[in-house]
Write a protein that binds this DNA or RNA. Structure first.
Lengths: 292, 292
DNA sequence: AACTATTTTATACCGTCGGTACAATCATTT
DNA sequence: AAATGATTGTACCGACGGTATAAAATAGTT
């Protein structure tokens, strides 16, 4: 991802969130980003693709944050709620959810398929996490619970979109999570469910796994771009991470623990988003088949 | 509602449901309905208003059907489920829900406010019905339950939009209703809720009540338009209804029971939709403050 | 420094869209 | 038959997403 392209992406995101997708013309984006039309269409083939890029970017980022939350922390409803929260927060005050829906009804069938895939992926992730947290006995009902959790939370967010504080948002998530517990219990007692386990997994053309050596090289290269006062620390981390990555059986717990502060060294730096892409590849290496 | 206007409305509805709102141009509607652009803008001030009219029409019709279902039948979860079903079915295989969402993200703030009002109105109705069915003790939790019911059902409909049979649709509604029962129980036990009772009622500029005499006159006039073989029956009904309406204290149970078969006499007739408008006024007379 | 390749810019242009204007025509009422 | 109002056809507007292209700026290589 070009740095300039990221700049355009941020400008477009700002405008979309502020004025909505339909109400933001390409000309608006050009003015906001200070680029010409030719450049825009050099980066994106259409306004729609620009929107997709924004969502992909946001999804990737929050996936990394979800992994980081789970690193070295015990699993449970609290972790799950935080992981849900982190994606919602990344979607800046939930307004990106509107972008999702905007795409869903924009006509273009390619876009709709993309959005359906995103939706299914989130549901699959939630189904897996629910079985993680609430045990094997919840598996037959986890798909239904995930679907209902998603629907309930969506309503609570849409009904009161003027949520400013994280507390308030967190409260709603915890509330819905508690209700989902009750639903799981109820479904187990009555043995009723409409969906089958694993119904959400889409026949994904799974992207080729990144190579450990490539990721290791990226980490070392990125460490060198750090400002001088953090460079030494960054190099220590990067050398350790890349060394561990080249081992036959990397110590994953250790890796995960070190990966988090390393990534944070880049907070606020211009290549912040590139780092996140590399970290995304790293997490994918550590658990290849997991849905994030 | 002009008969010709209704014809245009049906054409537009057909196209919107088939190709989506954004993918249907005004020119498409003109061709489908066989009218000119001037006529279209004589009926509607904009494409958006046309969409609003479709939704209003559909909402009014299903409100009448909901009242008819309740007439002379004992209240309970079964009736509630049927009332929910009838609106979903009226929204032709749930595709009108997409129109709702299309409007929500079309940019126009007026449209969004309208849709928000529709949404709130449905939530308020559901909250009231839940307290009807599950008793006074459910009141403090009915608003939350309504919101969650709405969200869960929406997910079950969106996730599997290829529902053909009424059974399948009905199954999902019953399933969600059972889950809502569990949620009510759970919230009562833990005494947790996020919303307050009556939170959904919008400061509505309540439309002026129709006059009983006007409605009575409409009923008599409509009866005369019936085809000869049904005209006598229709007149009997209409005379009874209008007579009862002019009483000081009309016998409402009787009125409701007779109103249903009278309205059905017009099924398939060209003025079917006008009849429903009059019936809507009749029901509003019988319970002025109720949300439908 | 000079040459090359790529990116970026500026501008003109296309077809489609929602919406407006208006004179001509049709149908209904009185 | 006159008058009124609805309907038609057509031309037009500005804004939109998207294309084309030649000129200018930038980066990379030798």
């Amino acid at each position: 991802m070009n740095e300039r392209k990221q700049h355009v992406l941020n400008a477009a995101k700002r405008l979309f969130l502020e004025n909505g997708f339909a109400n933001t013309s390409i000309q608006n984006i050009l003015d906001e980003a200070g680029i010409s039309k030719g450049t825009f269409y050099n980066y994106f083939n259409s306004k729609n693709e620009c929107l997709i890029s924004i969502i992909e970017d946001s999804t990737e980022n929050s996936s990394v944050l979800r992994e980081e939350l789970a690193a070295g922390r015990q699993d449970g409803p609290g972790l799950l709620a935080d992981q849900i929260l982190v994606r919602l927060q990344m979607n800046r005050e939930q307004k990106i959810i509107r972008l999702y829906e905007a795409i869903l009804h924009s006509g273009d069938p390619d876009l709709r398929n993309y959005m359906k895939a995103v939706h299914l992926s989130e549901l699959a992730w939630l189904e897996r996490r629910l079985t993680d947290v609430y045990g094997e006995q919840s598996r037959p009902f986890a798909a239904d619970a995930a679907l209902m959790h998603f629907g309930m939370l969506g309503q609570y967010l849409q009904f009161a979109p003027d949520i400013t504080s994280t507390e308030e948002l967190s409260n709603r998530i915890l509330f819905v999570t508690k209700r989902t517990e009750a639903l799981l219990k109820d479904m187990a007692e009555t043995d009723e469910h409409l969906l089958e386990a694993g119904q959400f997994v889409l026949s994904a053309d799974s992207p080729t796994l990144p190579s450990p050596r490539g990721v290791a090289a990226d980490l070392l290269r990125l460490a060198d771009t750090l400002p001088s006062e953090r460079r030494e620390t960054g190099r220590e981390f990067a050398v350790f991470l890349s060394g561990e990555l080249s081992e036959e059986r990397p110590r994953t717990a250790l890796l995960k623990t070190v990966a988090v502060p390393f990534r944070r060294l880049f907070d606020g730096l211009p290549n912040e988003s590139e780092v996140r892409t590399v970290m995304s590849a790293l997490w994918r290496l550590l658990a290849p088949d997991e849905i994030r």
